[in-house]
Design a protein around this nucleic acid. Structure first.
Lengths: 269, 269
DNA sequence: TACAGCTGTATCGCCAAGCAATACATTTAG
DNA sequence: CTAAATGTATTGCTTGGCGATACAGCTGTA
């Protein structure tokens, strides 16, 4: 019986189909609290967290209290608001070191560095995006180009296109249609049909080539990592500056190296 | 009234002082489930997770179910056991990008790379350990030397000693006494008094120098990052191979660069 | 081929853990 | 000086989480 005295009970019960007897709401809420920082650009107050996690201030208080006692949230240095806690980085380490693809990709990528001075990244496939797992910087990079965990859209990046090109056409199309095709630069290709053509080309070439579509002035080559069934697990990508390279020179001198590395990794899956 | 029918209720109620009315047990248990992977060396079964998180199989089932639906746990590729999920890397990204020290350290470290070809790391201070947050590889590295989130003891590493040297003596001593001083190599210094002397030297020199104590054949220089109150927030460290460098040459050519970088960062706090 | 011991999955009734509401002392913003 | 934030603390109600238990599907082994 719905109780009119409880104004919140009518409202969405924090995601998840109601009749999931195994779903632990408090656990999910704790994660939502941590995820509140996904669209933050600085410390969050309890009220901010409550709003972003879609819970009331009481719940936020309890959850933040709990997470803080576990080191997964901390107070900001100036004692205004909360920030993600350092213990979260322990999970990072687990995620990376236990990932079979990262395990075999690491030494291969490390080896690549010897023959290449451009930025080399390895990222993991997550449908509409790829997530940076290993990063090897070149000389000048930006802040975000150095952080692990950064994710970028599949539809307009070299690593993303590489993974999409390994999917059945229908599936790639579904992902492109699902994701909001934001115009990141003036040259971002946001036409689904045209993107599909680029995927077809990438499939033929064995690598994806993207210029100016996500970051202006950047050219990148991406090669997918596949399991035995041919499904994409991640991608190796190499990024260079258009002020130093012509597109042709860049792809000619980097694509074969990336492809060879990918072959070495694919052999394990 | 204690109920003898509930065998688990007598036992430690999943950490945390009982009379903490704000503590949300299910939330903490969810975190414990994720932390179960800290001492795993491969996929874990439900039973494994239950054991490591110190909960029963039912709780593990529910929590894993919940975390899996949120992408924080996934099935392993061969469908045997569970692994940390990719969504955890989103929290990594938040932790790093929202950390004020990482924000200002990143460009400085990037800049350092131009004048140095050795491995440069930036790590965050967490009392008995420092956690790698930014990593710039040199040529040959090992698997663990490339992963973000990896943590190493403060007592026997360059970054760790650097941070300890910035603490009041009593506090540094307390941390050293608290942490189990494991003999990582034949040359690891596990004598508290002797370590304290090394800290004193690091304080005078303005940098910590460690050779062969954590990884054989490695020499490293560490410099602390401090806030306005002089408390350590993290450290910059540079590691080199003893097969290429004498200890003196290494410290002479790297320490000043690290110190200058640290000064640039410290100015912001 | 049966069996023992694993997996992961599913169900259920009980009750205390988690809940929302509320109050409040401080600090910040206007 | 007020108004609206901040974080903190308490309480009584009730539903969400709990542990126990059962089971189907593998895997290896005797």
């Amino acid at each position: 019986m719905p109780d009119p005295k409880r104004p919140h009970s009518s409202v969405a019960s924090n995601f998840q189909a109601d009749a999931d007897r195994l779903f632990v709401r408090s656990a999910a809420r704790a994660i939502h609290v941590l995820s509140a920082f996904h669209d933050a650009d600085g410390p969050l107050s309890l009220t901010d967290i409550a709003a972003k996690a879609e819970i009331d201030r009481s719940a936020a208080q309890r959850l933040v209290h709990t997470l803080m006692s576990l080191g997964h949230i901390r107070r900001s240095a100036d004692d205004r608001g909360y920030l993600p806690g350092l213990r979260l980085l322990d999970h990072t380490h687990d995620t990376l070191r236990l990932d079979p693809v990262v395990q075999v990709a690491t030494p291969v990528i490390l080896e690549m560095r010897k023959s290449l001075s451009e930025r080399i990244d390895f990222s993991l496939y997550d449908e509409t995006r790829v997530i940076y797992a290993l990063r090897m910087q070149s000389k000048r990079e930006t802040f975000y180009a150095t952080l692990v965990g950064h994710s970028v859209p599949t539809f307009c990046t070299a690593g993303g296109r590489a993974t999409l090109s390994a999917l059945p056409v229908a599936e790639a199309r579904e992902i492109i249609d699902r994701f909001p095709l934001h115009q990141y630069t003036s040259q971002t290709n946001i036409d689904p049909d045209s993107i599909m053509e680029r995927l077809e080309k990438a499939r033929r070439d064995g690598f994806a080539l993207v210029e100016n579509e996500f970051v202006m002035g950047e050219v990148a080559v991406g090669v997918p990592i596949l399991n035995r069934q041919g499904r994409p697990l991640g991608a190796i990508h190499i990024a260079g500056s258009l002020s130093e390279w012509s597109v042709e020179d860049f792809s000619r001198s980097t694509a074969p190296i990336a492809q060879e590395a990918a072959r070495a990794i694919n052999a394990s899956f």
